[in-house]
Nucleic acid binder design. Structure first.
Length: 423
RNA sequence: GGAGAGAUGCUCGAGUGGUUGAAGAGGCACGCCUGGAAAGUGUGUAUACUUGUCAAAGAGUAUCCAGGGUUCGAAUCCCUGUCUCUCCGCCA
């Protein structure tokens, strides 16, 4: 959520940012500024009235103590007159506060100045790339055939048990999942991230806190009987650990990592883009989250990108890093880098990680703050990234490392997988 | 699922209708003391919104789990909900 002060003092900047993010409803800004003005005027009225009731009540108390009952009764009658009005105004005020909040949360975050202009994924900018493309022969197989060949995964079984898009991993496939999760978590904890195992469902406050609500309501599975949402990423429960807290400055940066399954409804896609593991409703992911001093967040963003990059490199895959353009960035992000891996059998790039700086967009809503050296309370900046999302990594590992003898496991992963090859 | 107890500031803890935003203690910060430290001692130590200002100081409102209610006035009384703890039952 953007701070209202920003709209009040720098409307032009906000409008420019919204345009860059390809946000359509620009009139919303004026509506918010307007209601904010009216709300504040009403609050002044409300507070004044409440102040007079309060001071009268104190006087009544003193009169009673002195035994001047008549005078006290007189004042009571007077206060009673004001009370009706006060209640009316208070009701109006809270309605206005809600209305303002509801509009404010509709606005996406401001993009950082380095975000490229653009509306579609084609306009993202490649910032660097690495790794090598394997030379596969004509018999190369896409991962959905490799998983079948080695008995690693079944979509049919998942459909039987649950529905389309819920893969079942088995045998060496299940083992590879476990190995990847373990590897990623230890890689992260070695870099100083504290490991968490959070709940996989969250309440509404948490979903608002990280910006999934109201923007992505339809993309989350909703457990209506209890009002919970299945998490679309561990970012949600993990970042919300610090909701409504004031962090000691000396405890910054807060570095957290967690494995979780991720649930996404993702309606509306079809075709070869979603075949096999390319897009599923439930998948596993290891996430890294940092809460940092506002002055450090862009430095930390680069550090996190470097962290994920080394991890990708260790898997011996060809990758590229994109800086997302304004129109392709997520609602809450100020600057996002996507990691894509080249799938040699599908001959296309697959997104496996997304690392973003949210600045204060999430922490403003969550009230995650710290006290600076002057004793002033400020919002921290939040960042997160995938390290990594499993299904596409698995797809790329299988495809890129396939040989006639089997799938070669990258060296870094061997200690976790326990053998050098899937066959 | 059944029975009971409870929820107050960074922590512990007092407080059953009227200068209580909240005693007291601890912690923490800063100062004094000290050659330095400990001890001692003094001061300070919530959050949000509004107002004010170049900034501040200052002022107002709200907040003692949450939401309602009673009252001129509620941390304190009433109702509802949530959570925690103890005992019993059930259970991975």
């Amino acid at each position: 959520m953007l701070p209202i002060q920003l709209l009040r003092t720098n409307k032009e900047l906000v409008l420019a940012g919204l345009k860059k993010k390809n946000f359509k409803d620009l009139e919303l800004v004026d509506k918010i500024i307007d209601i904010d003005e009216r709300r504040r005027a009403l609050q002044v009225e409300n507070d004044t009235l409440a102040a007079s009731v309060n001071s009268a009540s104190k006087q009544i108390g003193q009169l009673m103590a002195k035994g001047e009952k008549d005078k006290a009764e007189e004042m009571k009658a007077e206060v009673a007159k004001n009370k009706g009005r006060a209640a009316e105004i208070a009701t109006q005020l809270s309605a206005m506060e809600n209305e303002q909040f509801d509009m404010l949360v509709m606005l996406p975050n401001m993009p950082h100045s380095s975000v490229p202009d653009g509306k579609t994924p084609e306009e993202n900018v490649v910032v660097r790339s690495g790794g090598t493309r394997p030379a596969l022969n004509a018999q190369k197989l896409p991962h959905w055939e490799l998983t079948e060949k080695y008995g690693l995964m079944s979509l049919e079984l998942g459909t039987k048990i649950t529905g389309a898009g819920f893969p079942v991993f088995m045998g060496q496939g299940a083992r590879l999942q476990r190995a990847l999760i373990n590897y990623f978590l230890s890689y992260n904890t070695h870099a100083g991230y504290k490991e968490y195992c959070p709940p996989f469902m969250v309440n509404e406050d948490s979903a608002y806190g990280t910006g999934q609500l109201p923007d992505k309501e339809g993309q989350m599975y909703h457990v209506t009987a209890d009002g919970f949402y299945l998490i679309p990423t561990a970012e949600v429960p993990v970042t919300n650990i610090y909701r409504d807290t004031i962090i000691k400055e000396s405890d910054l940066p807060v570095k957290m990592t967690a494995y979780s399954p991720c649930f996404r409804r993702e309606a509306g896609s079809y075709g070869k883009d979603v075949r096999g593991l390319n897009r599923v409703h439930q998948f596993d992911k290891v996430e890294v989250v940092q809460l940092v001093h506002p002055e450090k967040s862009y430095e930390v963003l680069e550090e996190m990108v470097g962290h994920v990059e080394k991890l990708v490199q260790s898997l011996e895959l060809e990758y590229r890093i994109l800086r997302l353009c304004g129109g392709d960035m997520s609602f809450a992000s100020a600057l996002t880098y996507d990691f894509e891996i080249y799938s040699a059998a599908q001959e296309r790039w697959l997104e496996v990680s997304s690392v973003s700086n949210f600045e204060t967009f999430q922490t403003n809503r969550m009230k995650a703050r710290f006290k600076d050296s002057n004793g002033k309370t400020q919002l921290v900046h939040s960042l997160n990234g995938s390290s990594l999302a499993l299904p596409r990594i698995m797809a790329c590992l299988l495809e890129n490392h396939q040989t006639p003898e089997g799938v070669v496991i990258p060296e870094a992963l061997v200690p976790f997988f326990g053998k050098k090859m899937i066959n």
